[in-house]
């Protein structure tokens, strides 16, 4: 049968930062072809295609079931595969090899994680489930 793509609206302007991305302006209507787990969605806008940050998109017709998983306060063990220095005060600074507990997997690719007593955002792209090969 025909593939029915989900339609989203851009909530803000987004400028491309790398080759395979797609620039959008607030109000643009895009079709989402694929959603990566790390917050990048492959979209189609007229005749252009490319990756757009999920954080910049909102559903046109609110989906019946919530897209985002509920938080898991027990935490899921993940290993840091790429270090990152916090840019905003609600983010964490962590080094490669450290382990963290993932509490909430958000669609925009910034997950809520806990390290000892501190909780904050960290890019899901820089983490890997403990015990899994990359």
């Amino acid at each position: 049968g025909p593939i029915i793509l989900q339609t989203y609206r851009a909530i803000a302007d987004y400028e491309k930062n790398s080759k395979n991305e797609l620039a959008v302006s607030a109000g643009d209507i895009v079709d989402v072809v694929e959603k990566s787990e790390h917050g990048w969605w492959f979209c189609q806008l007229k005749n252009k295609r490319g990756w757009v940050p999920a954080a910049y998109l909102e559903p046109i017709d609110s989906p019946d079931e919530p897209e985002e998983a509920d938080p898991n306060y027990e935490g899921e063990l993940y290993i840091i595969i790429t270090g990152y220095t916090a840019d905003q005060d609600d983010e964490l600074t962590l080094k490669e090899g450290e382990s963290v507990e993932v509490i909430h997997k958000l669609l925009d690719g910034w997950w809520v994680v806990r390290k000892d007593e501190t909780t904050g955002y960290y890019p899901s792209m820089y983490m890997q489930k403990s015990g899994e090969k990359s």
């Binding site: 987004y14 790398s18 990756w51 954080a55 925009d108 910034w110």
Partner: peptide, 20 residues
């Protein structure tokens, strides 16, 4: 064809998203 996703993480949500 779906191109390779960017290597860097996406930006944090824009202010417009946080107003919600």
């Amino acid at each position: 064809t779906i191109k390779r996703p960017p290597e860097n993480p996406p930006p944090r949500p824009p202010p417009e998203a946080r107003k919600k």
